[in-house]
Design a protein around this nucleic acid. Structure first.
Lengths: 329, 329
DNA sequence: CTGAAAGCGCTAACAA
DNA sequence: TTGTTAGCGCTTTCAG
């Protein structure tokens, strides 16, 4: 692989001139430019980012931390991030942390080591203290999941309100026995959605029944099935279920089905996220839709702003309840 | 952010000594080591990968090219790649190419520019010529999708045989009118699976009916629905469908359902990939399972081998037909 | 408009 | 055992 020296030599100019051509500095004669470009082509030369970054101390690479690429929820957000990044001449690198602090560390180092210019974190299980420390010296944005006390800017929806809307929808339908399949409440969004659930119930004077609240350790389908199985064993079966993620809701749907019960006739189900699967189930799933693409765009814009030294403010986007067959009794 | 100079100064040693401490060279007195470590801590120093890589010309970073993170098929493969990489002291970076040559280019440059040591490509739509050119100077492995004529080592399953098995299973069940929902036959796997489909039919003297072969442009659910809709309009409705991906099969399932038909009573369905959602559908989906995790491990091992200058051979792994409700008539 | 040279942060010969 | 120094590939002043 040729380097800038060889190009300069071949073109009969100095490395400085080659660099100028590479960076489109206007102060180069068309004639010299041509010579240099020819040399570049002949040698199949590609400038080294390493040298360039070392010099400029910027990489124009953004890191995106996701807990697991298997969660379809992140797909659209990432599209948004990617499109915005590219528009601004940045590129993104996806980092699957697997919610594993060790892997996380690796990616944090990429930033510390100037191999990336900033981070968008979407991992709810991220080591917050580390993220905060990192944020002191490096641009970081939290997307979707965040720590309210951290000073790290975030973009999110109002989870409490969204859950409130979902549950209120069920109540309006006449349901009084509404179960909650929540994830681990160590996550902020889980705590917020539970609050929304409880607020809706309280507002309509419905009691909060502990038996109808189930916390899963993970978000995969099977955990939704397991949760539903438990709920169906409770003394008084719920007539509706609100799950904090579509994957859990789909698992619940499956479990209800396999007990010979019908959705929504016997039990109504509401999910959260509007992943693409949610319209492939039978019945299709009522769900809370987050503006994921826009969320990604916003997060990327904020990060780039922050890299360029501007102060950025956290943003709360709007959600929307998408009513489909699973609550159309 | 402190640099090695400042650490050396603070510790009262030379930069070389600091470097030795960083790289665990045994030839440092415990006393000096301690001094250096203290200085490192006090200054909150983190070595710059940029400087280090520029010097060593290695980054210990592997690039993984995927066409789209929304395809669940890749999830497990990536787990395998990741685990193997980490075991060998490498890290991986996911690159979502969106099957977009421009994005592809960016990631190719990362390798050319020494920001990554090698690539595992899983993008069927990759620009093969570019990949081949790149492979001349850089370690590259093809995973799952590959070009048979390219000399770039690959790991895959026998797609022709897998399709043959799937269709034979349907034939053994008594089906004689078997449709194929295939993706774009510009992809090698699509051509191979079609061959397997045709071989099974021929072997049992069943005619190949053009009306029962449908090619989609993409793999999302909706394309499966659309395909199925067309197939249901054909003069003679097929009694079974083999789709080359679970996502397509699930779309087909949905479409069959919405026509008031039952799977498998009216139409049997077989998919391909065994994505996690395929056990959540109603009925659950019969599908061809690839050893995805092992595939990922193998690809990563091959790439690391290749980086270390060894010759590596292509590998074909075994598949397995997983029989579930959608073909249990 | 172009060239010479310094320096980004690091490692590894070579010297001491 | 430690220090000195060259150099990885590039950009950017400063001179010319």
């Amino acid at each position: 692989m040729a380097n800038i020296q060889q190009v300069a030599q071949k073109a009969g100019v100095s490395v400085a001139t080659v660099s100028r051509v590479l960076n489109n500095h206007a102060t180069v004669t068309p004639k010299t430019r041509l010579k240099v470009e020819q040399a570049i082509n002949e040698l199949n030369y590609e400038p080294s980012m390493l040298g360039r970054n070392l010099r400029n101390s910027e990489s124009r690479l953004l890191l995106v931390l996701i807990p697991s690429i298997s969660n379809p929820f992140y797909t659209e957000i990432i599209d948004g991030i990617e499109d915005t990044a590219i528009k601004n001449n940045y590129n993104i690198l996806l980092c699957d942390t697997d919610s594993n602090p060790q892997r996380e560390n690796i990616y944090f180092n990429l930033v510390k080591n100037k191999l990336a210019d900033g981070i968008i974190s979407m991992d709810p299980a991220v080591d917050m203290q580390k993220l905060i420390d990192l944020a002191e010296h490096h641009p970081i944005i939290q997307c979707s999941e965040y720590d309210e006390n951290s000073c790290i800017p975030y973009v999110t929806i109002d989870n409490e309100l969204a859950a409130y809307h979902a549950v209120k929808h069920l109540i309006k339908l006449g349901h009084e026995k509404i179960a909650l399949i929540n994830s681990d409440e160590k996550f902020l969004y889980a705590r917020q959605r539970r609050q929304g659930y409880e607020r809706a119930l309280s507002e309509f004077n419905l009691p909060i029944n502990k038996e109808w609240i189930y916390n899963t350790t993970q978000l995969e389908f099977e955990f939704g099935q397991q949760a539903m199985k438990k709920l169906l064993q409770s003394d008084e079966k719920p007539s509706a279920v609100f799950a904090v993620s579509d994957t859990l809701a789909i698992g619940a749907l499956k479990e209800i089905n396999s007990h010979g019960l019908l959705v929504p006739d016997d039990i109504s189900v509401v999910g959260f996220d509007k992943i693409s699967f949610s319209s492939m189930t039978n019945p299709t799933l009522t769900t809370v839709s987050q503006p994921m693409y826009r969320m990604g765009c916003t997060a990327a814009s904020m990060l780039i702003d922050s890299i360029q030294g501007n102060k950025v403010e956290s943003i709360v986007l709007n959600h929307e309840l998408v009513i489909r067959e699973s609550t159309m009794g």
